[in-house]
Design a protein around this nucleic acid. Sequence first.
DNA 1: CGACAAGTTGGCAGTTACTGCCAATAAGAC
DNA 2: GTCTTATTGGCAGTAACTGCCAACTTGTCG
Lengths: 203, 203
Amino acid sequence: MSTPAAPVEGLRDRRRRETAVEICAAALDLFEQKGVQGTTVDEIAARAGVSARTFFRLAGTKEDAVFIDDGRFADALAGVGDSGDGIRALLSALRDVFARELQLLDADARARERYLRVRRLIAHEPALLGAAVRREVTSADRFVPEIAERVGLAELDVRTALGVAGLEMRTTLDEWARRYDRGEASTLEGLHREVRARLADAV
Amino acid sequence: MSTPAAPVEGLRDRRRRETAVEICAAALDLFEQKGVQGTTVDEIAARAGVSARTFFRLAGTKEDAVFIDDGRFADALAGVGDSGDGIRALLSALRDVFARELQLLDADARARERYLRVRRLIAHEPALLGAAVRREVTSADRFVPEIAERVGLAELDVRTALGVAGLEMRTTLDEWARRYDRGEASTLEGLHREVRARLADAV
DNA sequence: CGACAAGTTGGCAGTTACTGCCAATAAGAC
DNA sequence: GTCTTATTGGCAGTAACTGCCAACTTGTCG
């Protein structure tokens, strides 16, 4: 019963992931303490226990350091099934996939706290905002051709649906961080529902 | 009859704007020719006839260089009037404002060609995508409190409406550049209408 | 087990984006 | 015409990032 066909994720990949996590944690701490501008790559690398050279190999960019261990939503995107045809069905499926991820976050205190720190940082650091949105857009773009073919829609339709679902997510996560700063607490799933309702109301 | 109360835009501001235009044009040319990574700030500055130091003072960032002479949509945002209450009315007003700007672009061949070059560059250069989206988001954020107070809506509602309107804009401009690359030509206003229709269909 | 292929790491040197500071100059106010 | 103020360019310095190379670790195949 032990996943026989698995690629036997070797020790190399495990280490790789571990150092990515280390780098993320280090960057998160330092960015919170001294701001993005105020911390150097050398500091992050030192705290993560790697050389600056390896930092760049794994993180690519100073700003990207806080994102490299979280493929959560991108992975979720890969798992969206063909749930009927039509743009409305596609958007519905995307919403479900994202809502599911938010549920998981609501249920996992540790992951939720960490993610909240990241989103609060994004809200306060414009340098991170740019990196985050660029990551989101390029990651979504990767799936457009595949999804378009699978559900038989024009790429423009797929991009529109992905855009709406992504906007709802971004708005939800922003508002989540904002409310936390005001001392209010909300569940992500509930906020997502509220954002969707307001968007539906607007359109 | 010669605008007596005008702030008499001095020679300084005129020069300032002129050099900004020079820098933009130089960056646009060079980015097209050799890619963003392939061109250095010194080259852009030299072509624009200024020192590297002044380049950074005006442009702030290498990637931002192509954007600094176009406040078109940000300015339009500032001019959105209070068109009734409710999120639906706000979104409608935002759409009108943006559609008006697209009309102006459709009508002005010179401005349209230049803007097309910028959007095509954004579509092909991820480094510019990040800068463009960051600019858009931060610029929209500036207006949220003001608009919220003026039309009497919660900030979340304003952010939602701005998000939808911005998404529609980004999608139409992306599709515009994409179709140009495929050899098809479309009017921006028509595309905007089509994108809005698809989005309404999805939601 | 041993040898070989392949991937990973860290240091080093080099480039380039970006900043603070200063002196020179040009524009605007009186 | 002068004084204030803004703009410019050079210079030095920091820090992000890259290519290259040598040492080492891991997976593989006999």
